[in-house]
Design a protein around this nucleic acid. Sequence first.
DNA 1: GCAGTTTGTGGATAGATGTGGATAAAAGTG
DNA 2: CACTTTTATCCACATCTATCCACAAACTGC
Lengths: 143, 143
Amino acid sequence: MFIGEYTYSIDAKKRLAIPAKFRKIFGKKAVITRGLDNCLFLYSIQEWKKLAEKLSKLPLSQADARGFARIMLIGAMDVDLDNAGRILIPDYLKKYSFLKKKIIVAGVFNRVEIWDENKWQEYKNKTETEMGNIAERLGELGV
Amino acid sequence: MFIGEYTYSIDAKKRLAIPAKFRKIFGKKAVITRGLDNCLFLYSIQEWKKLAEKLSKLPLSQADARGFARIMLIGAMDVDLDNAGRILIPDYLKKYSFLKKKIIVAGVFNRVEIWDENKWQEYKNKTETEMGNIAERLGELGV
DNA sequence: GCAGTTTGTGGATAGATGTGGATAAAAGTG
DNA sequence: CACTTTTATCCACATCTATCCACAAACTGC
């Protein structure tokens, strides 16, 4: 599915390009929503339906599950891709993810993540140090 | 699977040749990712799928697992081999691995490693001096 | 050794891609 | 209702990329 890291910038008309490789999967429409760690998630329509189904089945009684589902569902918005494969990001999502000008667009399996460049660097540094040794983890996975 | 050490250079169009022997295994496509010690790993599609499958089973809700999967997956990129068996290396991976002009391409079991020549020499020197110690450890392991 | 094949390397060219702007339609405002 | 502001659709174009093709060097089997 989606794979790879790309750098784009939001232009004067607030448009953000999606990598050509990803466009072919999305088609003309996609769903954007609040992600984790202050990034945004972009799903294809099919994937979004699957995810929404799962989220709706989370037990209403559990506060944390309910919160998780809320974040994902309430923030969601359907977006169109223009002829050049660009999308418009709603203001409230732009605020949520601190998007400025330089943006990282990254494929992670069944979703695309959208990060402000600074936030991405921050996250990557933090995670790489916390993660300790990649080699050990790979070992645990039997790779 | 992959065996041997080869030297190539990145040409003016940023293309890096893959040894003919390896091409037959890869076919037309491969997946390149951040490796260890500032080298890059090149996997065949089948091998990558195995690895990705394991990563995909890590729970999305746990921050550290999420981080690990992100770093591994977002660092990855699918690459095409042209008719002459050459690939294009994304800029962010070139930076990560300090690739300049002269490149070492080496087969290591189920993956191919890509090193900048200088980094490779550095690593080899370091490792060879530690070799004595490593040998002792292997002895402890009964090898 | 030699003819034919494979391999590494370089370049040409058409098409795709990223980015910006022009214009038209829609929505908001006094 | 007139006017401004925003949004959507379309077009322009420089740059990048994929795909071919060329060719010398190395290798192959005979």
